[in-house]
Each structure stands twice: as C-alpha cells, then as structure tokens.
Lab assay of single mutants.
Amino acid sequence: ESFERTINIAKGNSSLGMTVSANKDGLGMIVRSIIHGGAISRDGRIAIGDCILSINEESTISVTNAQARAMLRRHSLIGPDIKITYVP
C-alpha cells in the first residue's frame, strides 16, 4: 500500500542531488538517481523509484521530462529548504 508523504529537506547551500524523469502515466515524476553527498542522499528518506507528486506545493502531475528537470532546478535555487510530497 502506497501513500503520500510530505517532507521538508534542509539543503542549505548544497544541491538536492537527484535526477528525475516524467512518469509515463502522468502521475508526477520518478526519482532516477540520487547523488551521494547531496541533500536527498543525506536526508535518506527519498529513494530511487519513488514518485514525486509536488515540490514546494507545485504539482508535478502531467509534466514532461524537460519540465520535470526545469522544475527541480528552479526549486533547488529557492531558499535553504525544500518541501517534497512523494509516494515511496
């Protein structure tokens, strides 16, 4: 059984350190890789294959690959914290 989780990740000045791609069925974006030493890796809660539904409350539903990457990059630049809703 999968259910949504919303977490805050304190990334400070470091990068999030993950790559994503659009989910084929349009439901959010899938975590493709996690870079060791990045904020996601240090936090430890998000794993490869998890589905991200929103970043800082901006929905990732029906985004393209390019939009998913641009959204991740944009939110990575805002502030020291990032809020991610995902399904493990």
Rank of each mutant, 00 (worst) to 15 (best):
L27D: 15
E1W: 07
G38C: 07
L16W: 05
G49S: 01
I9G: 00
T85G: 07
K83H: 07
I84P: 03
A22C: 11
H36G: 12
K24I: 08
L72R: 01
R74F: 07
I84M: 06
R69G: 10
N56W: 01
N56K: 00
T85E: 05
I78G: 15
I82E: 02
V87A: 08
S41V: 03
L16G: 00
A70D: 14
H75F: 12
M71E: 05
S41M: 11
E58H: 08
A66G: 12
P88H: 09
G49K: 02
S2E: 08
I48H: 06
E57M: 07
A70E: 15
R5N: 08
D81I: 10
I46Y: 04
S33M: 04
T6E: 06
P80W: 07
S59T: 07
L27T: 14
N8K: 13
R32A: 12
R42G: 05
N13A: 10
I9V: 11
E4P: 10
T85K: 13
N13L: 09
S62I: 06
K83N: 10
N8L: 13
S21N: 08
V20E: 01
T60K: 04
A68Q: 05
T64R: 03
N8H: 12
S59A: 08
T19Y: 10
G37Y: 05
E4A: 10
I7Y: 00
D81Q: 11
I34G: 01
V31T: 01
L53F: 05
S14I: 14
T85P: 00
P80D: 13
G28I: 00
V87P: 00
S2T: 12
N8T: 15
A68R: 02
E57Y: 07
G79W: 05
T60H: 01
N13T: 13
K11F: 08
A22E: 09
R5M: 10
P80I: 07
S21I: 11
C51F: 05
I35R: 14
S15F: 14
I35T: 13
L77S: 12
N13H: 13
G38Y: 05
A66V: 09
G17A: 01
S76Y: 07
T19Q: 11
G26S: 07
D50V: 02
R42A: 11
E1R: 07
R5C: 09
K83E: 07
L53C: 06
M18A: 04
R42Q: 14
N23F: 04
D50T: 01
S14P: 05
A66F: 09
I55N: 04
R42K: 15
I78H: 13
R42P: 00
N65R: 07
G12D: 07
S62E: 13
R69Y: 09
A47D: 11
F3N: 11
S54T: 07
A10H: 14
I7N: 01
G26R: 06
S14Q: 15
D43K: 00
G79S: 12
T64W: 01
F3H: 12
P88M: 04
D43N: 00
I40Y: 03
E4K: 15
Q67I: 05
G12T: 08
R5A: 07
G38N: 04
S62V: 08
I84K: 03
T60W: 06
N65Q: 11
I52L: 06
M29E: 04
M29L: 14
A39R: 05
R42Y: 05
T19N: 09
M18Y: 03
T85V: 08
A22M: 15
I82N: 03
I34D: 02
A68W: 08
R45T: 04
I78N: 14
V87M: 10
G17N: 01
G49N: 05
I61F: 12
A22K: 13
N23R: 11
S33Q: 12
R73E: 15
E57T: 08
A68K: 02
G79H: 09
I35C: 11
D50E: 01
G37N: 08
S2I: 14
I40G: 00
S21M: 11
V63I: 13
N13K: 10
A68M: 08
I40C: 06
N8A: 10
L16I: 11
I46D: 01
H36S: 15
I40K: 03
I40E: 00
F3I: 11
A66I: 08
C51N: 10
G37A: 05
S2F: 14
D50I: 00
K24M: 10
D43Y: 04
L53I: 11
T64P: 05
R32N: 12
M29C: 12
R42F: 04
R69S: 13
E4Y: 13
S59W: 02
N56L: 01
I34P: 02
I84R: 02
Y86L: 04
G26P: 03
L72T: 04
S41R: 06
E4N: 13
N56H: 01
T19C: 09
K83C: 08
L72I: 11
S59H: 05
S41G: 11
V87I: 14
I82V: 14
E58Y: 05
R42L: 11
Y86G: 01
I52Y: 04
M29P: 03
R32D: 14
G28W: 01
S14T: 13
I7V: 08
S62L: 08
G37Q: 07
Q67R: 08
D50S: 01
S54K: 15
R5D: 03
G79I: 05
K11A: 10
I46K: 04
E1S: 09
E57H: 11
V87C: 10
I35Y: 10
A47V: 07
T64E: 05
